[in-house]
C-alpha cells in the first residue's frame, strides 16, 4: 500500500461497523460470563472474525455493549498481538523466530520468505494476499521451524514445504 492512499483507506475502514449477527453473538458472549467485562476479548475476536481486524467503529460498538470507554477498548486491543487495528493480508504468515525455531533454521526461512513475497517482516504484499510477521514461540518447538498461517500451524518446515503451501493459498 503506498503512502498517499493509506490515510484515506484507514479512515474508511475505521468507519466500518459490525453487522447484526455479530452484535447478537456479542450479546450471547456477554451472557456467558458472571460479569460482562470478561466478554471484551471474545467480543473483539468476533469483530475480527467479521472484519478481519478490529475497526474503530467496531471498538466503539463493543465499548458501548460492555459499558467501558472506547479508549479503554483501544488500550486492550493494542496490548494483544493477535488483534489487528487495520486491514491485513488474506493470509497472515506468522513465522516463529524464538530459540528452538532459530536453532532449526528460522533465520534462513525468514530471508527466503521475504525474498519470495517481496516484502519485509511486518509488511503486506501489494495484492493484499499475504502479511508476513515474525512472532515469538508458538508452543510448537518440537516441530521447529514452524509458522502459523491464519488459524493453522505448519510444522517441520523447509523452504520447499512452505513454498508449496503459500502457492496453494489464493
Amino acid at each position: 500500500m503506498n503512502g498517499e492512499l493509506k490515510v484515506g483507506i484507514e479512515f474508511e475502514h475505521a468507519a466500518q461497523g459490525l453487522g447484526e449477527s455479530t452484535l447478537k453473538e456479542i450479546d450471547r458472549a456477554i451472557a456467558r460470563y458472571p460479569r460482562k467485562e470478561s466478554a471484551l476479548l471474545p467480543a473483539l475476536w468476533l469483530a475480527q472474525q467479521e472484519q478481519g481486524f478490529c475497526s474503530l467503529e467496531a471498538q466503539k460498538q463493543i465499548a458501548e455493549k460492555i459499558g467501558v470507554s472506547p479508549a479503554f477498548v483501544a488500550g486492550v486491543v493494542s496490548f494483544y498481538t493477535m488483534f489487528h487495528t487495520r486491514p491485513v493480508g488474506r493470509h497472515v504468515v506468522d513465522l516463529c523466530t524464538t530459540v528452538s525455531c532459530w536453532l532449526r533454521g528460522s533465520d534462513d526461512l525468514l530471508s527466503q520468505l521475504e525474498r519470495k513475497l517481496g516484502i519485509k517482516a511486518g509488511e503486506t504484499t501489494r495484492d493484499g494476499r499475504f502479511t508476513l510477521r515474525t512472532v515469538e514461540c508458538l508452543g510448537s518447538c518440537g516441530t521447529a521451524p514452524m509458522c502459523q498461517i491464519n488459524e493453522d500451524y505448519h510444522e517441520d518446515l523447509t523452504f520447499k514445504k512452505i513454498d508449496t503451501i503459500l502457492d496453494g493459498l489464493k
Partner: peptide, 11 residues
C-alpha cells in the same frame, strides 16, 4: 497459556 519458549506439552 503455554507460552514459555521451549514448552509444548499442554497443547
Amino acid at each position: 497459556d503455554e507460552s514459555e519458549p521451549g514448552t509444548f506439552k499442554d497443547r
